[in-house]
Amino acid sequence: MTALAPAASPARTPLGSSIARTLRLGVLRAGYEIRVYFRQADAIFFTFLFPVLLFGIFSVAFSGQGNIGTAPDGSGGISQGAYYLPGMAAAGILLSGVQNLGVDIANERSDGTLKRLAGTPLPVVSYFLGKMGQVLVTGILQLALLIVIARVAFGVELPTDPAKWLTFAWVFLLGIGTSAVLGIAISRLPRRGKSATAVIIPIVLVLQFISGVYLSFTMLPVWLQDVANVFPLAWLAKGMRSVFLPESFASAEAGGAWQLGTVAVVLLLWLVVGIVVSRFTFRWIRKDS
């Protein structure tokens, strides 16, 4: 051990402007969180690579069934890969936010990470911003990887109309933001870090099955569609289908159209719900009663 430099001055340094400080620390936290994320093999596999892997499996497994949406003479239509791409994009957004953060924060509460942070002058909002920044960056990388693999390995035709990509941008941003805040909110559910995956993964999995990610949404019974439509994933998947599927597929949707206005409204509502619930229920530690 070496000697410590003597204290510069006994006078206290104030923390400074709270909003600027909160944002600055939020950016620092995001950098820290991203570094930690990519050092955790399980996070990379179950939330980062999982949708890409499933996409590959579905595309290969169902390729023998031929194209979807073909003309009566069997020509045209789109490949199985092209058909699954929007669903996997939506699933990736859900996993990056809800599953990743729900499990991650429950573990951090359990292993003492949050207790340590609670003893520092880190604002709760900076911590949230760090998590959201991590979800945004990993979500972008994940979708980029998925789209590149779809194009290069499976020859999926990507939209060329800039308007489609504009839709993609806002559906992605709204979806990833909603998914992140809902992940923070849901992290309160597991009582212990050990049970976090057991509590959160089934919720996420069921939501994916009823929301048109793995199964075509319109093949579900109407009452199940109605249940799924309460949650944001079905709308996120629909928004992604509007980007990646040909315009002719709109007629096969519930309601016979892409309904992008409703997509935006439902995602926004859930974003607000997520922010309010996170902000008011989040505690660094479970204080005793």
């Binding site: 930690v36 050092r39 573990n107 003492g112 990470t113 207790k115 340590r116």
Partner: peptide, 15 residues
């Protein structure tokens, strides 16, 4: 203005 050394914790330690 506080420094806190808690009883040992079980953080992941990936940094």
């Amino acid at each position: 203005r506080l420094g806190i050394v808690l009883q040992s914790t079980g953080e992941q330690g990936d940094v």
